[in-house]
Write a protein that binds this DNA or RNA. Sequence first.
DNA 1: ATGCCAACCTAACAGTTGTTAGTTTTGTTT
DNA 2: AAACAAAACTAACAACTGTTAGGTTGGCAT
Lengths: 196, 196
Amino acid sequence: MAKIQSKKNSTKKEIIIEKASKLFREKGFGAASMRDIAETVGVEAASLYNHIQSKSEILQAICFKVANEFISHLEDVERSGQPTLKKMETIIRFHIRMMLDQYEYVYISDHEWRHLPEPYLSNFLNQRRSYRKRLGDIIEDGIANNEMKNIEPYVAILTILSAISGIESWQRSRKSTSADTLEANMVKYLIEGLKK
Amino acid sequence: MAKIQSKKNSTKKEIIIEKASKLFREKGFGAASMRDIAETVGVEAASLYNHIQSKSEILQAICFKVANEFISHLEDVERSGQPTLKKMETIIRFHIRMMLDQYEYVYISDHEWRHLPEPYLSNFLNQRRSYRKRLGDIIEDGIANNEMKNIEPYVAILTILSAISGIESWQRSRKSTSADTLEANMVKYLIEGLKK
DNA sequence: ATGCCAACCTAACAGTTGTTAGTTTTGTTT
DNA sequence: AAACAAAACTAACAACTGTTAGGTTGGCAT
């Protein structure tokens, strides 16, 4: 058996996905070619197919990895028994941290999912809809027991998630604002707007 | 001279841009081909070049049209002498309305600008940075004269603009929430989070 | 040493891309 | 009716796309 592990304790497949992520984010899924990816991996394009099955498999891996992390975290929060406002803060902070720590992956999951082939596309969108619905239910609870002001749960969720995904713009910027300042202020803004 | 006006009182160039917008939004700039565009216009791909110079010229037209509308509106607001909180509400409502009424164009300007060729790309990003800076100045004024709570202006602007651009997701949805409800609730959320 | 096999390579495929050249159609103006 | 130009057409280009076929290399287990 040849070396299947590289220095970073990750398989070649994982390396390909990691390098591809950067390109997908920079140029978009369509504009990043297999030859582009191969070059950054240090290999010919055809050789990639020893590790992956297709270009879109890379996209699938990224999108579902991210989706699963969010769903899994949400389940923890749902089971936690915290007050609803605290639940929302925990979720908001998790989303922000994901945006800071796993920028490439989260960005792609946010913006390039439309290039998923069926049936993965429908699958992804279903998971997404269900995730947002469950967040909406938390807001609904918060309004019902007077922790939150009366706001359309759907609109609140849309606002929160979109605001956080805007951190992508901060990532591309010269970062005169620190990550901590960003997190603190965004949490403050989004929670204050929710609190009764 | 042949007919330069079509039934809709718009030039063929405008028709091309309009049809291309829909495709760019649905498939992305890279994935929408000139032949795709030509088909929806009802013409061969080569014939498009009687009206436009290149594919990216279409993108430029869209991005700068949108940018100019926002800048022009901001100038009106700056000159209006309203209290800062009212200024921000006016701007937020304008952004929301643009997202509702000119969805295709605004979406493309938001998401496909990266495919602009230089020097248009730098130009666009400069305009954008300047626009956000001026919005930040309004927030700064609002904090200084105690209309708004103490929040990092940059983060506030990032949050507001990102939240609004998330309306794209509502546009794609089954719309169980009406446009008016959406606007009312999002304005409420974003302004309440700002108000002292 | 020998055999094995994962992982690389080169070469090629069939299709698509944006765009140009050259020609013909079309409708209007003289 | 003749002339003109805008706008359509066909055909082709060079480059690039994702992917496959088939051969070569290099390190491990026997």
